[in-house]
C-alpha cells in the first residue's frame, strides 16, 4: 500500500516565465510565493515519484485522433519540445521517469474502467510540464516523474464529475496496487481562467478564479463539483480554463482535505489567472 504524501495544483502559463521580469511587483510576488511554496513542500514530502496531470495542448496528437489521457512511460522526460523553447523562454530540463509506476497506473486504471493511453517513447512537453518543473526546480530534485497528459481542450472531453471519479480510481491504484512504502506525490498542472488563441485572449475572469481557488481549498467537493462546471469554465475562458480539471483528478485521489493558497494575480499580460493550492494531507475533513 503506497501513500500519497503531497498534493497540489498550479497553473502553467508560459508568461510567468517569459514575462516575469516585466510584471508588476505584486504579480511577481504571487508567482514566486506560489511556486516556491509548492516546490518547498514537494521536497519536504520526500516523494519517490511525482504523478503530474497536465493538459496536452494538442502537442502530441492530431486533432482528428485525440486521446483523453496519455501516460508517459519513458525512463526519462525532457523539455521543452523544440518549437516551445523560445516561446516559454525557460531552460532545458530533464527528469527521471518511473516506468514501473506508469505501467501500474495504466493497468490499474484500465482494470477500473478508465480508458487510458500510454506512450513508452518520448512525449513532447510544452508549458504543461516545463513551467512547473523550472518554477519549482523539480529537475534539480532527482524525483522521478510520471506525466499524465490530459485532454482539457478538444471537445468533448471528460468533465468535472468524470475527472473526479478518475481521480478516485487513481487513489485506489496508489493505495491498492503500488508497492508498500512507496511515497507518491500528485500535481495538477493547469488553469486558471484563460482563453488561449481566442478573441478574449487578454481577458481573465478574476471572479471565477477567486471562487475556484476558494472552493478548491475547502474540503467540500460536492460544492466544487456543483459550482465549477465545464460550462462555467468555458464561460471564464474557452479552451483554456477547463485545465482546472487536472486539479479535480488530484482532489478525487486525495479526498476532502483543506488546502492553502498563496495569493492570486490577474495581471493581463500573463494571459491567465495565477494562483495555486497545496492540500494538507495530514488533516482529514
Amino acid at each position: 500500500m503506497a501513500e500519497i504524501v503531497f498534493a497540489a495544483g498550479v497553473p502553467h502559463a508560459p508568461a510567468v516565465v517569459g514575462l516575469f521580469d516585466k510584471a508588476p511587483d505584486e504579480a511577481r510576488a504571487v508567482v514566486s510565493r506560489t511556486f516556491d511554496s509548492v516546490g518547498r513542500a514537494l521536497r519536504a514530502a520526500r516523494p519517490d515519484v511525482l504523478i503530474v496531470f497536465a493538459n496536452d495542448h494538442l502537442t502530441n496528437s492530431r486533432i482528428t485522433a485525440y486521446p483523453d489521457f496519455i501516460i508517459g512511460m519513458a525512463p526519462e522526460h525532457r523539455g521543452p519540445h523544440e518549437w516551445f523553447k523560445e516561446w516559454i523562454g525557460c531552460r532545458d530540463w530533464a527528469v527521471p521517469g518511473e516506468p514501473e509506476v506508469a505501467r501500474a497506473l495504466f493497468a490499474g486504471l484500465t482494470r477500473r474502467g478508465v480508458r487510458m493511453n500510454a506512450e513508452s517513447g518520448p512525449l513532447k512537453f510544452d508549458d504543461n510540464l516545463s513551467v512547473p518543473t523550472v518554477m519549482t526546480d523539480l529537475d534539480r530534485t532527482g524525483i522521478r516523474v510520471v506525466p499524465v497528459l490530459q485532454n482539457c481542450t478538444v471537445p468533448p472531453f471528460p468533465d468535472g464529475p468524470r475527472c473526479y471519479a478518475i481521480g478516485q480510481a487513481v487513489g485506489e491504484v496508489i493505495r491498492q496496487d503500488l508497492p508498500a512504502g512507496l511515497r507518491v506525490a500528485l500535481l495538477g498542472s493547469g488553469g486558471l481562467s484563460h482563453e488561449p488563441g481566442g478573441a478574449r485572449y487578454y481577458k481573465i475572469d478574476e471572479e471565477f478564479d477567486r471562487q475556484f481557488l476558494a472552493l478548491a481549498q475547502r474540503p467540500d467537493h460536492a460544492t466544487l463539483l456543483r459550482e465549477m462546471t465545464v460550462a462555467r469554465m468555458e464561460e471564464a475562458g474557452l479552451g483554456g480554463t477547463a485545465e482546472c480539471l487536472s486539479w479535480f483528478i488530484v482532489l478525487g485521489a486525495i479526498g476532502e482535505r483543506p488546502g492553502e493558497s498563496f495569493g492570486y494575480t490577474g495581471w493581463p499580460s500573463f494571459r491567465c489567472g495565477i494562483g495555486g493550492v497545496l492540500w494538507n494531507l495530514q488533516e482529514a475533513a
Binding site: P14, A15, V17, G18, L19, K22, H57, L58, I63, W83, E86, W87, I88, G89, T153, V154, E195, P196, G197, G198, Y201, L238, G239, G240
Partner: peptide, 18 residues
C-alpha cells in the same frame, strides 16, 4: 480550434516569449 489558431499566429508573426 482557437488553440491551433494561436499557434498559427505565432508561425506568422513570431514565437519568442518577450
Amino acid at each position: 480550434h482557437p488553440y491551433l489558431g494561436g499557434q498559427l499566429s505565432r508561425f506568422i508573426w513570431g514565437n519568442d516569449a518577450g
